[in-house]
Simulated assay, not measured.
Amino acid sequence: MEMGRAITVDLQPLLNAGCLLRLEGAGQPRAWLKVTIPDGRFIGSNFGDCLNFDCRSIENSANGWMEEWLIENSVPYAHG
C-alpha cells in the first residue's frame, strides 16, 4: 500500500491563481480553509492558514484533481 503525503501551498500563490479563500468556523478551535478554484470546484484544508491536503498520487487519490490543477496553473508548493 502506498503511503500518503501532505501537500502544502501558501495563501498568496492561491490568490494569485484566482482562488477564493474562506475561513470556515472562524474563531472556533477547528477552523479550516475552504479553497475554491476559478471553475467552482473546492477543497478543504487541514489548516486555516494555508492549503494543506493529503494526496497519495495524482492517479490514485481523491484529491488528485487538486494537485493536477496546481501543476497546470503553476502554483508552487510550500511543501509536498
Rank of each mutant, 00 (worst) to 15 (best):
G27P: 08
R30L: 11
S57M: 06
S45M: 05
A26E: 15
R22G: 01
A62R: 11
R41D: 05
L20E: 04
R22Q: 11
P29S: 02
N16R: 14
A17K: 00
F42K: 03
P38E: 09
L20C: 01
R30A: 09
P13C: 06
S57D: 11
L15H: 12
C50Y: 14
C55L: 00
A6W: 12
I37M: 01
C50R: 15
C19A: 15
Q28W: 09
I43R: 13
T8S: 10
P13D: 01
A6S: 15
V35Y: 01
Q28A: 13
D49V: 03
L21M: 03
G4Q: 01
G40W: 02
A17R: 05
P13H: 07
R41Y: 06
P38G: 06
E24D: 14
F42T: 02
L11G: 10
L11V: 08
S57V: 02
F53K: 05
W32N: 14
G40M: 10
R22V: 04
D54F: 03
T8H: 10
P38S: 03
L21Y: 07
R56Y: 00
A31S: 12
G44K: 09
C50A: 15
L23K: 08
R5G: 14
D39F: 05
D54W: 01
F47E: 15
G44S: 12
I37G: 07
G18T: 05
A62K: 14
L33H: 08
G25P: 13
L15F: 09
F53L: 13
R30I: 02
G44M: 08
E59M: 08
P29Y: 03
N52C: 15
P13I: 03
A6K: 13
D49N: 15
I37Q: 12
W32R: 14
L20R: 11
G4S: 01
I43P: 11
C19R: 10
L14K: 04
T36H: 12
A26P: 11
C50T: 06
G25M: 09
R30G: 07
F42L: 01
A6R: 12
Q28S: 14
P38L: 06
S45D: 08
P29R: 02
D54Y: 02
I58D: 03
N16E: 08
R22P: 00
A26R: 15
S61H: 04
S45R: 03
D39N: 12
I43Q: 13
N46R: 14
C55M: 02
L51Y: 06
N60Y: 02
S45W: 00
R22H: 06
T36N: 04
F53S: 00
G40T: 09
V9L: 08
G4E: 11
T8E: 14
L11F: 12
C19Q: 08
G18M: 01
N16F: 03
K34Q: 11
G44C: 10
C50G: 06
G25L: 13
D39K: 04
N16C: 07
G40V: 07
P38V: 07
E24K: 10
I7W: 06
C19I: 04
G25Y: 15
N16S: 02
C19M: 07
L21I: 05
Q12F: 09
L23A: 06
V35K: 00
A17I: 00
S57W: 05
